[in-house]
Nucleic acid binder design. Structure first.
Lengths: 338, 338
DNA sequence: CTGACTGGCGCAAACGTTTGTTCCATCGTA
DNA sequence: TACGATGGAACAAACGTTTGCGCCAGTCAG
């Protein structure tokens, strides 16, 4: 039953029912009595205004899109949950899309999302996304927020951590212990956050001056197979590094696997620092030193900015970048080199 | 720009544009020339029919809801990704909701989803959901599918594993090694799947007859804190079990933590079998023996059934339950009791 | 007694599609 | 020449809301 049928049933105008059910009863001076009558009948027959009709008329539908590269990545699933919950509090639903780390799929999905009549969009881009994604985003018909990965050439508000500083954080932790050869396992060389993290590592090394340790880099993809391959490449070298930093969250799994297969004793023969804290980080062997991102805060910020933009604010407060700091969680996977 | 503006621009009728853009050009005998002209202009101006208008008219919007208890639980995030991807192939979008394992939130969300004009619904209920959820689901205005957890009293198609058999599988693996005292760490005692898994364990024990081992049960919630507490309760007993089965995916984390704190040597002093295979299952210490669910297959089945229902089939093929088998992945976390 | 005001509500347009029906040429045939 | 077919496209109703405006009856002051 829709509100016009309900109106007919109660012998009032559709408009009256609409005003009551959308909470504008007093604004339009509907009498208490009529309001009560409508409310009760609506409850009795489970009548709720159809969002499609309302959306059509209002030009808003109370829903934003959320595009992530991989929902099975704990970083993004935590992000998704937080964003969804914060937005739900504000009466906004979330449509989820997962690009499976594939730029083509991402572009498809984005186009699809933009053709839908959403109120806004939160995009955590696949790292490698280039000019095509940017240009697509630029003509977004509604407020858009970039999450996790910075995209040059798009002036949407961006929420991310300071990846460069995070890279330095990871490297310094190893340098202080005297490591002289450090391996970096990248997620994807084309990814902006990956490059920034690596740059951060290099910053830290350069600050050591002449005593600057060796830096070995490997990796060309986020997938489990690619991570494994990169770890193998790093660990079967003659000049095997005494420590590895995995620049992407997934990289650590392959690294641990390979190290185990090669019979490398952890952490004595190989120290490890992993990006992204996970529930199981303290439980693997050895317990992992990780770089942890403030996911909740980032999601809160995203929801906050987006909903303020939905309320029609173009204020400077919401524009620009919002950069958070990552923190190092130290555990026994790092030690002095043998 | 919408299709009526485009029509005006091209000096054709809206209906003509609509028929071309929704792929019904030849059905309505639009000439090649007109079709081309419209197609090109549509591409040029990025015109796509507004789903709201179309949805309103058609009564369908090309979107289904997906309600899960916890998207950060790898089991559900894999499920979500698979479902989303399979449905996307069929041109259907997915709206995600996360109830955070809270029955109240779940009910709220469900009502919300049902008031939206969706085409269908996939629900993985919070275990404890009772009659209220069932009665809400019963008056669902569109096809609904139950995932992972069976709900008595709702005749929607259900997709799940045989939890009872899976419980036996876990128990047998320990019994064969001669364990005489087994602890079970439940997710939530009110959850149907939890009860089934426990029943499966009891089945296996009873088959041993007189030599039936001790069974200790603990746990009253899915949260990390509750899991920890349950593990503590189990491990600080005088008659500490020589093996633990964690009946819910999350339980193993707390168990490992507590075992480590208590200085229990794994697996010698305590064997472990965990429900739900995870990427890190082989990498923790000790590598975990797990019960693995065929997530992809389940998601595929869900998408298949739902989309066949969307095509208006009420066939017996899609009704009823679809029960899958779990498998045991054996690793070194189980051994003979000391 | 008249006029202005107000509380309470209905009217109707608009949002952007889809689709059954109608209409107008054009063509082939008788 | 006249007439039925047929291809091609326009017309208009319907989907379910929201909201500016107008209407009516009552109230109150002048």
């Amino acid at each position: 039953m829709n509100i016009s049928e309900l109106a007919q049933h109660l012998d009032v105008a559709v408009s009256t029912v609409s005003r009551v059910l959308s909470g504008n009863a007093e604004k339009y001076r509907i009498s208490q009595k009529t309001e009560q009558r409508i409310r009760e009948a609506a409850k009795k027959f489970h009548v709720v205004p159809d969002p499609l009709g309302a959306g059509l008329r209002r030009g808003k539908i109370g829903m934003v899109g959320l595009l992530v590269p991989d929902i099975t990545n704990p970083f993004f699933s935590h992000l998704a949950r937080a964003v969804e919950s914060k937005l739900r509090n504000r009466g906004i639903a979330v449509q989820l899309c997962d690009s499976n780390e594939d730029p083509e799929t991402e572009l498809d999905l984005l186009r699809n999302l933009m053709s839908r009549r959403l109120d806004g969009l939160i995009v955590a881009p696949v790292g490698v996304s280039g000019e095509q994604l940017a240009s697509t985003l630029r003509r977004s018909p509604f407020p858009t927020i970039l999450l996790d990965r910075i995209l040059t050439g798009v002036d949407a508000p961006t929420i991310a951590i300071d990846n460069r500083a995070a890279g330095s954080l990871a490297a310094n932790c190893l340098l202080e212990l005297g490591h002289t050869s450090i391996g970096c396992l990248r997620g994807n060389p084309l990814s902006r956050s990956d490059r920034d993290r690596l740059a951060g590592v290099e910053d830290a090394l350069q600050r050591k001056g002449d005593a600057s340790p060796n830096l070995l880099v490997s990796g060309e993809g986020y997938s489990a197979e690619q991570s494994r391959a990169a770890a193998e490449a790093l660990l079967q070298r003659e000049d095997r590094p005494s420590a590895i930093i995995t620049l992407s969250g997934q990289g650590i799994l392959g690294t641990l696997e390979v190290a185990r297969e090669f019979g490398i004793s952890l952490p004595d023969e190989l120290s490890l620092v992993a990006f992204d804290e996970q529930p199981w980080s303290p439980l693997v062997h050895p317990p992992l030193t990780t770089i942890s991102q403030p996911i909740e805060k980032m999601a809160e910020k995203a929801a906050e900015i987006l909903s303020s933009q939905l309320d029609g604010e173009t204020s400077a407060q919401s524009a620009g970048s919002h950069i958070f700091e990552a923190t190092l969680i130290k555990r026994s996977s790092v030690t002095i080199p043998c």
